[in-house]
Design a protein around this nucleic acid. Structure first.
Lengths: 221, 221
DNA sequence: TAGATTGTTAATCGATTAACAATC
DNA sequence: TAGATTGTTAATCGATTAACAATC
């Protein structure tokens, strides 16, 4: 349960908890749409193939009210708490740099906005792309990035350029005041202390998966 | 160092180690191309912003020879060991289901093949897509998936369909003998014990990033 | 040699799981 | 009531970090 001192929420979810919350949200949302009124941590755990204690702990962390033994949590309240906790209610602005195929995919994905992320605009150095509208988003030239960030105070930058350009884009972003970077380029970024980076890293994922498969096939494990 | 009993390698890398290895590989590869002959774990750690002990441990795990104090590891040998360990040398086949924009992106990405993953063919239920060639890959109708998997013995399936269709595609795959699933749909999959699943989950990543940013802005942390 | 770098053993940290009393 | 479900405390597990002797 969230405990409040003044207006400050003090439940600090771990990274791993945090990455499960959106899954709970979308699952419980589905139940709501099916007309359910209550949901138990146990049921969620079973549907999502997770340890029940884990789910219980996660949910009790974000819920504003205690769950009722034997019934569980009221879905409407719980969804509210989840979306509040995840910041789905208040919208963060972001910019995206690198309007290649991945960049376009992200720019045009409408689901991010329901998760509180509004990608305001894309930047690209290719003059052929500049001025185009992709989805409903305009593509601006790289030269305008600095003034854009400074004018709007946007804090989140998404990098979808090729790996060899990622560091330089990152440096520019940081220079202009971006505080959090979502990096889709396959390279680790060097950032000053205090700048947040979240890497999306397909080669790493693939390595884990294919190694596990190899082990399995070899019966090592 | 890899120790061998008969022909069986017994270093079992943890998931977290495994997901760092591709980063080491690509970084050290870059050094090789710049003409370097030796690399130290310490140097890699510094470039990638990682703890030196961690890198040392990871590298000593995969390297076939011991690193030389004061010099480090011979780059050519180390890269060989890394790519051997990661299975970049031997190619795994995979199929992909769901040829939307993300599916296309993955189908046409040429980098996977250098990482030992060959996406042989795509499947889609949309008759307009069937028969097309995207990149160099053919799109087949869903009905042919079963016979394709059984004929070729392919073991890896990539799911890029919308969330609400993912479970059913997954079930079909498992039914036909797929053992490892790379899931890009935003939903957790229920699979029988023993089937491997690796989820790519953007909403989860976003949740982590934006929460961290919020904490930062609130000076909670 | 002196110092950088290695590999390993022990300590720490964080997250998951197990155990259990409390409650509707 | 009996039993499912809750929240919490303690035990376990796994990964990272610290400490240190060995080596070129």
């Amino acid at each position: 349960m969230i405990r409040c001192i003044g207006k400050c929420t003090i439940f600090a979810a771990s990274k791993s908890t945090l990455s499960r919350l959106p899954l709970y949200y979308s699952h419980i949302r589905k139940m709501q749409q099916q007309g359910e009124k209550y949901v138990s941590a146990a049921a969620v755990a079973q549907s999502l193939n997770l340890n029940p204690v884990l789910v219980r702990k996660d949910l009790s962390g974000v819920s504003s009210v205690e769950g009722k033994p034997r019934a569980g949590f009221e879905i409407d309240t719980l969804l509210n708490d989840l979306s509040e906790f995840l910041g789905y209610n208040k919208v963060d602005e972001a910019i995206l740099v690198g309007v290649g195929s991945l960049g376009r995919l992200i720019l045009t994905n409408t689901e991010f906005s329901s998760m509180g992320l509004d990608i305001a605009v894309g930047f690209d150095k290719d003059p052929d792309l500049v001025g185009l509208q992709i989805g409903s988003k305009y593509i601006l030239p790289m030269e305008k990035m600095e003034s854009y960030i400074k004018r709007t105070g946007v804090k989140i930058g998404i990098i979808t350029v090729p790996a060899d350009q990622a560091q330089s884009v990152c440096d520019q972003m940081v220079e202009c005041g971006i505080l959090a970077i979502w990096n889709f380029a396959f390279t680790l970024l060097n950032v000053p202390k205090g700048i947040l980076v979240k890497n999306e890293n397909l080669p790493s994922s693939l390595a884990v998966l294919s190694q596990q498969l190899a082990n399995k096939l070899n019966n090592i494990k």
